[in-house]
């Protein structure tokens, strides 16, 4: 089954609910990249709270989404990595280098808000 992609303001939110096949992952990637252009999205959030394992192909696909998204003008952030998942990922050497991460959906939204605000104000924004 595919992953639903929700539009929330300038952001796209994809919540992965079950373990995905490689085809599903590619479908998610293609869908997200297409919709970034269609909705002029500035950010993408991929929520993997429900996942209890991330294999190398999933990590690779997520990295691809982040890079492709950046080329099309959207920042990607991965949220909801569980402690056990994080541990097994680093054991396998999958550290999601070059991809933004945040604790959960809320944090991801705050992160994207800051990123896009900073980008639109030309680096003027300051921490409170």
């Amino acid at each position: 089954m595919g992953v639903p992609i929700l539009k929330q303001g300038y952001y796209l939110i994809a919540t992965i609910q079950t373990a995905l096949t490689d085809t599903d992952l590619q479908g998610l990637r293609d869908g997200l990249i297409a919709q970034i252009g269609r909705y002029r999205a500035r950010g993408v959030i991929i929520d993997i709270t429900a996942l209890d394992v991330m294999d190398s192909f999933a990590v690779r696909t997520v990295q691809d989404i982040a890079q492709m998204g950046r080329l099309r003008g959207a920042e990607t952030v991965i949220v909801g990595v569980q402690p056990e998942v994080a541990l097994s990922m680093v054991e396998l050497g999958l550290t999601l280098a070059g991809v933004n991460t945040a604790l959960d959906l809320e944090e991801g939204l705050i992160f994207l808000d800051e990123r896009t605000k900073r980008a639109s104000k030309g680096g003027e924004a300051r921490a409170p």
């Binding site: 990595v81 994080a86 945040a102």
Partner: peptide, 12 residues
């Protein structure tokens, strides 16, 4: 290094 990487995956 792994601890640092794993923490980053959780956004810290």
């Amino acid at each position: 290094v792994r601890t640092v990487d794993a923490s980053r995956l959780q956004g810290a």
